[in-house]
């Protein structure tokens, strides 16, 4: 590691310890920090590397899996304001769409927000093609309401037995939530699922901040073979695990089934809806969803809602509104 990496490491040590020193002993903090640094040796503090005035600069880019990339973006105001559960809108290129992306991590000291993007269409492909050192044309946020738990005290959070379920790309936005709770001493179990081992995201990062990590893949190439709901069922029905709250983030269909299962256990659930959006500030209404029989805007009323109340079938249908046009453009352009 060159000189450029030295200063930021100290800054990171300082921040993490400042947040969590009440809960853990100093030695433990250093151990945790040491581990997280070992996991991300390439992290370079954005302020040191970039200086002011280059909002949107890609400070770091890492391929996490086929077609899935992690990027740390220099956006100091967003990094400072961001809380778990929120998202940003980004645009790559003057002709690009405004794309909502849930924040996967943020670092107020370095001034960066971390985004994980999967190539699914023209716009996400444009974002993923940007290299380290290039800029996203626009980044705006943080948008949406933060997760409800950010308003609770550490004691309240510790009194809750949490279960987080992250499916596919959803593991990335689960991470800052688990990290927040862990830093406040809460006990959090996490289920991370993917199609196969190579598509599992944030495994190591998650390990460092949760009490128990359960891996599940469709093909059994890592962890249990099956779906995230199979793991939840096993934990609750076979192993007698007791939870007070489930948070599920992932594909709509996964959230639907996790919410249903949670309801069958009389367990409150929270889901984070990745709807269509244009402005992300409440202006367009493209993101409207039916929650408890009422129309809500995911961008300003959400993106997190009570899983038991969401009309998932409608939400899934609405996601496909522009799909034929998007597919056509994706195939027609390169």
């Amino acid at each position: 590691m060159g000189m450029s990496g030295v200063l930021p490491l100290f800054i990171r040590l300082y921040v993490v310890s400042k947040i969590s020193f009440i809960f853990v002993t100093k030695t433990a903090i250093h151990l945790i920090n040491f581990m997280s640094i070992q996991e991300k040796p390439e992290i370079v503090c954005a302020r040191a590397a970039a200086g002011e005035g280059v909002e949107g600069l890609i400070i770091k880019k890492r391929k996490l899996a086929e077609n899935i990339y992690l990027m740390a973006i220099y956006a100091p105001r967003i990094a400072k304001a961001a809380l778990p559960g929120q998202f940003v809108i980004v645009r790559a290129g003057e002709y690009g769409e405004r794309v909502p992306l849930t924040i996967s991590d943020y670092d107020a000291v370095c001034g960066t927000v971390t985004l994980v993007t999967q190539v699914v269409g023209v716009s996400s492909r444009l974002i993923c093609r940007k290299a380290k050192g290039e800029r996203l044309t626009d980044i705006a946020g943080p948008l949406g309401r933060p997760s409800e738990f950010v308003h609770k005290t550490p004691d309240e959070l510790k009194a809750v037995r949490w279960l987080f379920v992250g499916g596919g790309l959803g593991a990335a936005p689960v991470y800052p939530q688990v990290k927040w709770l862990h830093a406040r001493g809460a006990t959090v179990d996490v289920v991370v699922g993917a199609k196969s081992a190579s598509l599992l995201l944030f495994r190591k990062e998650m390990q460092a901040v949760c009490s128990a990590l359960h891996i599940v893949t469709d093909d059994g190439s890592a962890g249990q073979k099956g779906l995230v709901t199979d793991v939840v069922r096993r934990l609750v029905e076979e192993e007698g695990a007791r939870y007070d709250r489930v948070v599920a983030i992932g594909p709509m269909i996964m959230m639907k089934f996790v919410a249903q299962l949670a309801q069958s256990y009389q367990l409150p659930s929270v889901v984070s809806l990745n709807t269509l959006m244009v402005d992300g500030t409440g202006m367009c209404g493209a993101c409207r969803v039916t929650v408890g029989g009422k129309t809500q805007f995911a961008c300003v009323d959400g993106p997190e809602f009570d899983g038991a109340l969401v009309d998932f079938d409608e939400a899934m249908r609405r996601q496909t509104m522009y799909r034929p046009m998007e597919t056509e453009r994706y195939q027609a352009t390169r």
Binding site: V278, G282, G285, T295
Partner: peptide, 26 residues
């Protein structure tokens, strides 16, 4: 500025193909 688009709260308003003028114009 003006804010959030109003809807009529009639059945079928969240069908695919129903948009606010704000969305369509934006």
């Amino acid at each position: 500025g003006a804010g959030l688009p109003k809807f009529m709260h009639i059945p079928g308003e969240n069908l695919n193909g129903v948009v606010s003028a704000n969305e369509f114009l934006t």
